[in-house]
Computed example of a mutant assay.
Amino acid sequence: MKLNPWKEFEPIVLVFENKKRLISTAHEAAAVLIKDWPGDDGDEYCVAVRTCWEVILGKMDAFELRRALLRAAEEAGIAAIAAVH
């Protein structure tokens, strides 16, 4: 099985307390979910992590990851801004 962490979706900017992160690939989404997320116990967070893995495995479309990230950001109180690519 060949993994593809570079699957792209329309970019979003997530605004954390001390930095902004531009996210447009499954790889970037995985990094922000693992390194920068303020907590790991929310339902939408868990869905976003699972969706990220499914996208990397090629089992799900990257658009679904973008949607999952937006829902997880809302759940965590993280501002999300649509970015022009």
Rank of each mutant, 00 (worst) to 15 (best):
R21C: 05
A68D: 00
V13H: 00
R50N: 08
V15E: 06
K20F: 00
P38A: 10
E17C: 01
P5N: 09
L69R: 10
A68L: 10
A73N: 09
A72Q: 13
A80P: 03
T25N: 02
D36I: 04
E74M: 12
V47L: 09
V13D: 08
E8F: 01
M60I: 12
A62L: 07
A31P: 15
V49N: 08
K2R: 11
H85C: 09
W37G: 13
R50S: 01
C46L: 01
E64T: 00
A26K: 04
K2E: 08
A29M: 07
M60A: 03
P5V: 15
V84E: 12
K59A: 11
I23C: 06
V49D: 07
A76Y: 08
T51F: 04
L65Y: 01
A80K: 07
L22P: 10
E17A: 11
K2G: 02
E44N: 10
I34E: 10
S24V: 00
R66Q: 02
E44W: 10
L33Q: 15
F16I: 04
E8R: 13
G58K: 13
V84R: 14
M1D: 14
A30L: 08
E10I: 10
W37F: 14
W6I: 14
R50I: 07
N18F: 13
M60R: 12
F9W: 06
C46M: 10
G58Q: 03
A82C: 05
K19Q: 04
A79Q: 11
H85A: 02
F63V: 09
V32R: 05
I81G: 15
A31L: 00
C52W: 00
L70H: 06
G77N: 07
I12W: 13
L57S: 13
L57F: 03
K20I: 00
D41R: 15
L65H: 00
E10V: 14
K19R: 10
V13Y: 10
D43R: 14
A31Q: 14
F16D: 05
L22E: 08
A79V: 09
I12T: 14
D40W: 08
S24L: 00
I56G: 02
V13G: 15
R71K: 04
K35S: 14
W53P: 02
F16L: 05
F9T: 03
V49K: 12
L14C: 06
N18M: 09
K35C: 06
L14P: 13
A26T: 11
F63T: 13
G42E: 12
L65T: 04
P5A: 07
I81R: 15
C46T: 15
K19L: 12
L69M: 07
V49H: 12
E44H: 14
E75H: 15
A48T: 02
D41F: 11
H85E: 11
D36G: 10
R50V: 04
L3N: 09
A80Q: 06
A82E: 15
W6V: 08
G42Y: 04
L33K: 14
K35G: 09
E8C: 06
V15C: 05
K2C: 00
E74Q: 15
K19G: 05
R66V: 03
V84Q: 11
I23G: 02
E74S: 11
E17P: 05
A30S: 00
K2F: 15
K20M: 01
I23D: 03
L14G: 09
L69D: 07
L57N: 10
A82M: 11
A68P: 08
A26E: 07
A48V: 01
C46I: 11
E17K: 09
D43Q: 05
S24Q: 03
K19M: 06
L57E: 11
M60T: 07
